[in-house]
Design a protein around this nucleic acid. Structure first.
Length: 584
RNA sequence: GGGCCCAUAGCUCAGUUGGAUAGAGCGUCGGACUACGAAUCCGAAGGCCGCAGGUUCGAAUCCUGCUGGGCCCGCCA
């Protein structure tokens, strides 16, 4: 990478001026202002204090020691408080653009991750009902983070944790039984409890269960286990997996919580924590500022086995077992994460909604105690809006907007981009009216159109002139317009942009990069469409520009692939954009 | 009472991890197609980067304290 070569040149000079500081960090960055050259280096500012001189003098000393055997540098200036503004020869940029031709669909990849085995766990929606828009945000963030890590050289597995054990799934089973008795005349009715799931889909589950031979005349206690198994599997297969498929999201594994209990896996994980000395028997205090309620029989004053998560910065120690003796959800989650570690995943990443914020420190503490490394992406919640007004929804109530409705009205591409248009730690207002609009206020069309426009130019060159874009080092110096050099620089930014977004676990950066890149291309295209066209009578310029357009197209395609968004070669009329989404 | 997140143009948001004159989209106003796609582009107007201190060559960015908003807070999942 060019930036690294420039850094090496400066670092060598710094080492001569200040032999002791050779390993210290300084920045080599593209400056905001074009007049400041190709790279701004702040080495003199960073080292001035150590060198006990003023930055500008030090900058001059560094410049005096610069050696540039490959003749990359055209000009170096000392500017402002002591920046080195470095301008490279244009030929350096021309030659560098060959990398796109060499790497093609792989352009943008790097090996920063060095194949480190990494697991991204995301969605993990409870198998008790349809997914809502909040799950959609987590799904897109998780999927694109996983893509980013793959592109940055990690070996990535995607996993979905199925919470198919515990109290909520009994609520689901009971609700299904209640609805089944309604559907089967003559069977003694079982009433739907207030805490049971109320949604219409429960009737579908009940119908399917009856068709599969379920017998609603049996008492709940005797059939609840097979009913639980049936209902959670049905929800997963009919409500959750189809949505993920529409979204284009695949998981390497769906991991069942139930199997952890069935196979006694909690025990081994807890024993490990015992060995590490981070468990204890404790009577847990009530939360700060609250009195113990003597009438509340749910919280018996009785010692419980806990993980001493306070040692890792948690507010309080967390129980592994309830007073009833049953394991907590936390205990099962520990077993699950122990399993991940045992399978050799050195880096664990979980994608959670902000409503799980209180769970972060305890889970990190537990994983750390087991010798693992856990990072959690907490994304802020999605506020549903309709016509500018908050649109309240509740999971138990029958009416709420599902992810599927959203995918069906807005399409997978637009939904993905919409969710990635903000940083994850910003709350997101999702306007249902806006999601259904299919005009240029929707940014996905902008980027896809840019890709299609590049494709159109290449198509025209092929059909009317018989010309194919290809790398030819001899003609590249025909690219002399400042906008052309800027476009080359922008294209070459993709690998570091992806590596940077992966390191920060911030997928939205890719969206902004693509928007800026295509805007730059549109500007170039429009400015010169009457004077310096891509396809002209000058064979050298035409060949060089066709390659540049091809490289921009490849860059956009690769960026879109990371986002999981299609890159169409032609756009249909705006009214028919819905169909265009399906073309991958 | 405590913890996490947020506050930047009229609105929605970026801001390269501390750099030089803070950017984009939408909206407003004014322009640009007889040739590669006008789903586009160019220009103008619009800012106390929530407030007050601090750290240093240098702060939207880091630290402290406020103000306002979101989420969470006993063994649910």
């Amino acid at each position: 990478m060019i930036r690294e070569r420039v850094r090496a040149i400066v670092a060598a000079a710094v080492a001569k001026v200040l032999p002791d500081q050779a390993q210290a960090e300084f920045q080599v960055e593209p400056p905001r202002q074009a007049e400041h050259g190709d790279f701004a280096v702040n080495a003199a500012l960073v080292f001035a204090k150590i060198a006990k001189t003023n930055p500008r003098t030090l900058a001059q000393q560094i410049v005096d020691q610069l050696e540039d055997p490959d003749h990359l540098i055209e000009k170096v200036e000392i500017a402002g408080p002591g920046f080195l503004n470095i301008r490279l020869r244009k030929g350096v940029w021309h030659r560098a653009l060959q990398v796109v031709w060499k790497e093609r669909d792989g352009f943008g990849r790097s090996d920063a991750g060095q194949g480190k085995r990494t697991m991204v766990e995301f969605v993990s929606a409870n198998p008790t009902g349809p997914m809502h828009v909040g799950h959609g945000r987590g799904a897109v963030i998780g999927d694109v983070v996983a893509n980013l890590l793959e592109w940055a050289g990690y070996q990535v597995a995607r996993e979905f944790y199925i919470n198919d054990a515990g109290g909520q799934v009994w609520r689901l089973a009971h609700a299904v039984l209640a609805r089944a008795t309604e559907l089967r005349p003559g069977v003694a009715p079982v009433a739907l409890d207030a805490e049971d799931y109320q949604g219409e889909y429960i009737k579908e589950v009940a119908q399917a269960w009856l068709e599969a031979g379920g017998d609603p005349a049996q008492p709940f206690a005797t059939i609840r286990e097979p009913l639980r198994a049936f209902a959670t599997r049905w929800v997963l297969q009919n409500l959750i997996q189809p949505d993920l498929e529409m979204f284009g999201i695949r998981f390497d594994k769906f991991f069942s919580e139930k199997t952890l209990h069935d196979e006694n896996r909690l025990e081994a994980a807890i024993r490990l924590l015992d060995d590490k000395g981070v468990t204890a028997m404790e009577i847990l205090p009530p939360p700060k500022g609250q009195e113990r309620d003597p009438h509340d029989d749910e919280f018996v004053e009785k010692p419980l086995k806990v993980v001493k998560t306070t040692r890792f910065g948690d507010d309080r120690d967390r129980p592994l077992f309830k007073t009833t003796g049953e394991p907590t959800y936390f205990a099962a989650d520990i077993a699950y994460h122990f399993d991940k570690i045992s399978r050799g995943y050195l880096r664990l990443i979980n994608v959670w909604g902000a409503d799980h914020g209180g769970y972060v420190s305890r889970m990190k503490a537990a994983v750390q105690a087991m010798g693992g490394e856990l990072e959690i992406i907490l994304f802020q919640l999605v506020n549903l809006m309709k016509d500018g007004q908050p649109f309240k929804m509740s999971k138990r109530a029958a009416n709420y907007v599902t992810l599927r409705e959203l995918l069906e009205t807005a399409g997978a591409d637009a939904t993905r981009v919409f969710f990635l248009l903000r940083r994850g730690d910003m709350a997101l207002d999702f306007d249902l009216g806006l999601a259904q609009k299919r005009d240029n206020t929707n940014p996905v069309f902008y980027v896809q159109y840019g890709h299609a426009r590049c494709a159109a130019i290449l198509r025209k060159a092929r059909e009317e002139k018989g010309l194919e874009a290809r790398w030819d080092a001899e003609v590249m110096e025909a690219l002399q317009l400042p906008e052309e050099i800027d476009l080359i620089k922008r294209v070459l930014l993709l690998p570091e942009l992806i590596a940077h977004a992966a390191a920060a676990l911030e997928p939205h950066k890719v969206v902004f990069y693509l928007q800026e890149t295509i805007a730059q291309f549109h500007g170039y295209y429009t400015k010169y469409k009457k004077t310096e066209r891509v396809i002209s009578d000058d064979p050298r310029k035409t060949a060089a520009r066709l390659y540049l357009v091809w490289a921009v197209k490849q860059t956009l395609a690769n960026g879109l692939r990371v986002l999981g968004v299609s890159a169409p070669d032609r756009m249909d009329a705006p009214e028919d954009a819905a169909e265009a989404d399906e073309v991958a």
